[in-house]
């Protein structure tokens, strides 16, 4: 069994007086899909954000590929997110002024890809997700599900090593949800990427290799329970 690629150990994080995470653990190996489940407000999104270096935990360690994320400078963490991670967020994630195509091309442009090439790659991914027809539209003018798929395309377009997805299928019907999940699992298996997937839906979680349950800010490892 390979060593874990991303480990969050005993992570605590509060927002003011609200303890959102109270000693949560998460470890993901390369090529593995992990589902994070749990009741609403239990701290799933917060765990995801901490693991991705978006939020700094109050205590606990997050290591990626042997390096301690929590000790890196903001600029280094930004660079890491740009080059190694891909994101699908739960809320309002598309930049409203940019067209869908530009949104998908954005991570590539940020990484320095030329405009033409970025647009071509972005269009391929939109097509793979069945949303090539909305390429020229603004996020405000497409359906919630289409927007979600655009966001998925944007997360996959750079070929990230870890993909963080918060309710990626929340706005999708079963069929399209399944399509997205198949893309996630395939891209993880093909490229050895890891996927951290927050979801409420057991059918979506069933695509994962393993699930972690978060309850009241603490993670429960089901493998031990089994």
């Amino acid at each position: 069994m390979t060593a874990p690629l991303l480990v969050a150990a005993d992570v605590r994080r509060s927002f003011g007086a609200t303890p959102a995470l109270d000693g949560a653990n998460l470890s993901v190996r390369a090529g593995e899909v992990v589902a994070v489940m749990g009741p609403s407000g239990s701290g799933k999104s917060t765990l995801l954000h901490c693991a991705a270096g978006i939020l700094l935990p109050d205590s606990g360690r997050v290591t990626y590929d042997g390096a301690e994320l929590t000790a890196l400078s903001d600029a280094r963490r930004s660079a890491l997110r740009r080059s190694e991670f891909g994101f699908v967020f739960q809320f309002g994630q598309l930049v409203p002024e940019l067209t869908c195509l530009e949104n998908v091309a954005l991570p590539l442009r940020l990484a320095g890809t030329r405009r033409r090439d970025a647009a071509r790659t972005a269009l391929e991914w939109l097509a793979r997700l069945g949303t090539a027809d909305v390429a020229g539209k603004r996020p405000g003018d497409v359906s919630g599900g289409q927007g979600q798929r655009v966001a998925v395309a944007r997360a996959l377009v750079t070929g990230p090593r870890v993909l963080f997805a918060d309710e990626p299928t929340g706005a999708l019907d079963s069929y399209h949800g399944e399509q997205v999940m198949r893309l996630f699992t395939e891209s993880a298996r093909d490229s050895g990427a890891a996927v951290v997937l927050v979801t409420h839906e057991p059918r979506v979680a069933a695509y994962a290799d393993r699930e972690v349950v978060v309850r009241d800010g603490r993670s429960v490892d089901l493998e031990r329970a089994r």
Binding site: H49, A52, I54, A75, R77, S78, A79, L80, R81, R82, S83, F85, G86, F87, F89, F91, G92, Q93, L94, V95, P96, E97, L106, P107, L110
Partner: peptide, 16 residues
Amino acid sequence: RRPLAVLAAFGTRRGT
């Protein structure tokens, strides 16, 4: 705020 935070989340440089 929201778009700015999302840009930051996927690693946009401050300078940009």
